[in-house]
Amino acid sequence: MSGPVEANEVILMGHPVTTNPFIIMLINMTVVFAVLIGLSFMICLIHVVDPTKKAEEKPTAAPTPAAAPVAAAPVADNSVVIAVISAAVAAYGYSAANIIAIRPAGNAVWKNAGRMAGIQNSVN
């Protein structure tokens, strides 16, 4: 069944399979797609069986209706965050008296700028 093996013959399980570059290309692409599609299903499966998913979603969903009547001041204790921000500002030579207000940024610019900075100068 198997004759003399050519230099470009692809041999699988001891049997020459093909020398056709396009068939080699097709086999490889099929395997890559199959493995990666399998991985994407696995990611979905991990999401489905994730036992921490509900526990994390509840606290974010619950406070919304409760917070509405209060409306005015945020009740969370942010003293640690304020202390850290004050210390960071102080490190640049300003006193706490220079801080007028500390509030969450209204848009995603800083967050995205942080992400951009995070991927600079890396190597692969």
Binding site: P21, F22, M25, M29, F33
Partner: peptide, 16 residues
């Protein structure tokens, strides 16, 4: 993830 798979097409074009 499919986009990552599709981009490997270049590998096999070049192989051929």
């Amino acid at each position: 993830i499919l986009l990552g798979a599709a981009a490997q097409f270049g590998v096999f074009i070049s192989l051929a």
